[in-house]
């Protein structure tokens, strides 16, 4: 569908992958070109597997993954994808110069001067070994590569975990700069939801291999309300509606879908809920706990 290809940088439909102890079940994700999507979920939810399927590293058991209208993993497709992984795929003994020279062999639109400029800007020495670089520098190195081969889609796996607030801020700024061009799209997975709040247009929540929500960030924030109050004020019917119910010393807290909030007793405290809290409550919905 040429039309869709123009407007959708990424389309994942029904992605399914079976492992002995884990199942990625019918994941659907769509990112329109020019936007930023955050990919959130607890560790082990299947984010990395999904990203690998998007990059063509892992082959799905079922479902379709298309980037720019073409199949995931295709040579032409991956030329346009910039990759920033948790651990770079480069040998530890390589220097930034090695990375640049080797990447230049395989990326058609490689710009060596551009790469040198990026290294300079990020303060990465061309001759230092990767093993000697800090985690933040390794992320920047991968970013430097991604920005030097004309990538249209940037895929990042947990780029900010382990980084100090300054580095995280720098990364967010770079993502903003990247999507200033409306042909550029970003998909980044994180479990630090603060990094999403101002940067992401869309969000996908992945829990236990399933997509719980995928859509505008705004829409997710508005779908739920945080509610808390006296345990005795709740009827069992109310209790059932509360997601991630947690009670301690006679006071409970939890989350309800926005449309259910009206049905609750009026003297409870209801307020807006942050993305972080949504993730926590949804996680707890699997394992309820109360004291």
């Amino acid at each position: 569908m040429k039309g869709a290809a123009m407007t959708e940088a990424l389309a994942v439909v029904g992605l399914t992958k079976r492992y002995p102890e884990f199942l990625l079940d019918g994941v659907n994700i769509t990112i329109p070109t020019g936007y930023v999507m955050g990919f959130v979920g607890p560790n082990g939810a299947g984010k990395t597997t999904t990203l690998k399927a998007i990059l063509g590293i892992v082959k799905p058991d079922a479902g379709v993954v298309r980037l720019f209208g073409g199949p995931a993993g295709a040579a032409a497709v991956n030329q346009r994808v910039g990759v920033v992984m948790d651990n770079p795929y480069y040998p530890e003994g390589w220097t930034a110069r090695d990375v640049g020279e080797m990447a230049g062999l395989f990326y058609e639109r490689w710009s060596a001067p551009g790469f040198a400029r990026q290294l300079d800007q990020f303060g990465i020495s061309a001759t230092k070994k990767i093993s000697e670089l800090s985690r933040g520098m390794r992320v920047k190195l991968q970013l430097a590569v991604a920005l030097s081969h004309g990538a249209d889609l940037l895929v990042l796996d947990e780029p900010t975990s382990g980084l100090d607030p300054v580095a995280r801020d720098e990364l967010r700024n770079m993502l903003h700069d990247f999507v200033a061009d409306e042909a550029h799209t970003v998909l980044f997975s994180t479990h630090i939801t603060q990094d999403l709040e101002r940067t992401a247009d869309y969000i996908t929540l992945l829990f236990d291999g399933r997509v719980v929500f995928s859509g505008e960030l705004e829409a997710l924030s508005n779908s739920y309300l945080r509610v808390s109050g006296d345990v005795d004020r709740l009827t069992p019917a109310d209790r059932a509606d509360i997601i991630g119910y947690r009670a301690r010393g006679g006071v409970f807290e939890g989350m309800v879908p926005a449309d259910k909030a009206a049905a609750l007793p009026p003297d409870l405290l209801t307020e807006a809920v942050t993305i972080d809290e949504i993730v926590v409550y949804l996680s707890q919905a699997k394992e309820p706990s109360h004291v």
């Binding site: 020019g34 930023v36 967010r172 700024n173 409306e182 960030l217 705004e218």
Partner: peptide, 17 residues
């Protein structure tokens, strides 16, 4: 829309809206 989003460091959807 994009320029403002970049300057303010907010998402594009925000300025669009």
């Amino acid at each position: 829309i994009r320029g403002l989003a970049q300057d303010l460091r907010v998402s594009v959807i925000t300025t669009t809206r």
